[in-house]
């Protein structure tokens, strides 16, 4: 069970959180091409190594936030609030 540093609440066990998938996937605009829209909907970097992802502290403050985690070691590099630019 991961120990996740919520930027609002501090370190909390993983069972308090829900996962939000890859971060910084920008929702394609309504006038996007079919290909652009398909890419937005389905294609992910699924990176091995440093990976930007979203979590929600669902059973805590309820907030979504972003994280950078190494997907090989599962160690968090940093977490940051929505809208913040990662360090």
């Amino acid at each position: 069970m991961l120990l996740i540093p919520c930027p609002y609440c501090g370190e909390r066990p993983e069972i308090e959180f829900s996962y939000g998938g890859e971060a910084h996937v920008v929702r394609a605009p309504a006038n996007a091409t079919d290909a652009e829209w398909t890419a937005f909907l389905y294609q992910r970097s699924n990176a091995r190594g440093s990976y930007a992802e979203r979590w929600r502290h669902a059973h805590g403050c309820g907030r979504f936030f972003n994280a950078r985690r190494n997907t090989v070691t599962d160690f968090f590099e940093q977490t940051y609030k929505i809208g913040e630019v990662p360090a």
């Binding site: 991961l2 993983e14 890859e22 091995r48 992802e53 985690r69 997907t71 090989v72």
Partner: peptide, 13 residues
Amino acid sequence: DAYISYSQRGALH
């Protein structure tokens, strides 16, 4: 598990 990982291990819960 809930999250993406290449660690080849899952959580106890």
